[in-house]
Design a protein around this nucleic acid. Structure first.
Length: 196
DNA sequence: ATTAAGATTTACT
DNA sequence: GTAAATCTTAATG
C-alpha cells in the first residue's frame, strides 16, 4: 500500500523503447531512485547537478560516473519530488551498426548496452543531452512499451554505498543483456548476515 | 582554492 | 579476487 510510485514507474519502463542519436534499445534493466527520501539518490540533497530531477517529469538526467562514463536517467515524478529511474541495460533493436561502431569491435551484440555506462555510450548520450525532454523525438526519445516482460525480477541496486539493501533494481528475468550484480565495496555488510 | 568521493568498467594477479 | 583509470560535482578551508 505504501509502495513508492517510482518503483512502479521503474517497472513500467521495462520493455519500453529508448532512442538515442540513431540507436534504439528496449529497456531490460532499471533502478529506482526516490529523491530526497533516498540516501543513495543524487537528489537526496538538492544541488545544481540534481536540480533537473526536481523539475517536471520525462526529462533526461545525465551524470558522469568516475570521470569515464555517462549514465542516463528518466525523471518520473511531478515537480518537487525528484524521483528518477536509472536505465541500466537494454537490447539494441535498431541502429546496430552505429552501436557497434560506438562500442568497439570486441563487444558482443548482447553486451552493447549492458551496464549504464555502456548503454549511454551505445546511445551516444553525453552531458549535452542532460535536461532534454524525452517526449520530444530529438535528441533522446522515450518510446512506447514494445514488449511486455514475461517476468520481472527485483533486487538490491548495483554499486550504491547507501541504502544498499533496498530491492529497487528491476530487470527482465533471463534476459542476457542484463548486467551482473555487484555490491559497493563501501557499503556495510548485507543485513541478511547478522553482524557479530 | 583545494580536496575527496563516486548510481562504473576493464584489465590483471 | 583486486586495482587502476579519470573528471565532475560537492563539500571544506
Amino acid at each position: 500500500m505504501s509502495e513508492l510510485p517510482v518503483l512502479d514507474d521503474a517497472r513500467s519502463l521495462l520493455g519500453r523503447a529508448l532512442v538515442g542519436h540513431g540507436v534504439t534499445v528496449l529497456i531490460t534493466e532499471v533502478e529506482a531512485y526516490a529523491g530526497p527520501l533516498d540516501p543513495a539518490s543524487h537528489a537526496y540533497t538538492r544541488t545544481p547537478r540534481s536540480d533537473i530531477m526536481y523539475g517536471p517529469p520525462w526529462r533526461l538526467y545525465v551524470y558522469r560516473s568516475y570521470g569515464l562514463h555517462h549514465c542516463a536517467n528518466v525523471v518520473t515524478s511531478p515537480e518537487g519530488e525528484a524521483s528518477a529511474v536509472l536505465v541500466r541495460a537494454g537490447r539494441v533493436v535498431e541502429g546496430l551498426d552505429l552501436a557497434r561502431e560506438r562500442r568497439g569491435p570486441k563487444v558482443a551484440d548482447v553486451g552493447l548496452a549492458r551496464g549504464p555506462g555502456n548503454l549511454a555510450e551505445a546511445l551516444g548520450i553525453t552531458l549535452e543531452d542532460k535536461g532534454t525532454d524525452l517526449l520530444d523525438p530529438e535528441p533522446v526519445h522515450l518510446g512506447e512499451r514494445v514488449e511486455e516482460p514475461a517476468r520481472v525480477m527485483a533486487g538490491p541496486r548495483v554499486g550504491v554505498s547507501k541504502a544498499a539493501d533496498a530491492p529497487w533494481r528491476f530487470w527482465v528475468d533471463g534476459d542476457p543483456t542484463v548486467s551482473v550484480y555487484r555490491r559497493s565495496p563501501r557499503a556495510p555488510r548485507a543485513s541478511s548476515v547478522s553482524p557479530s
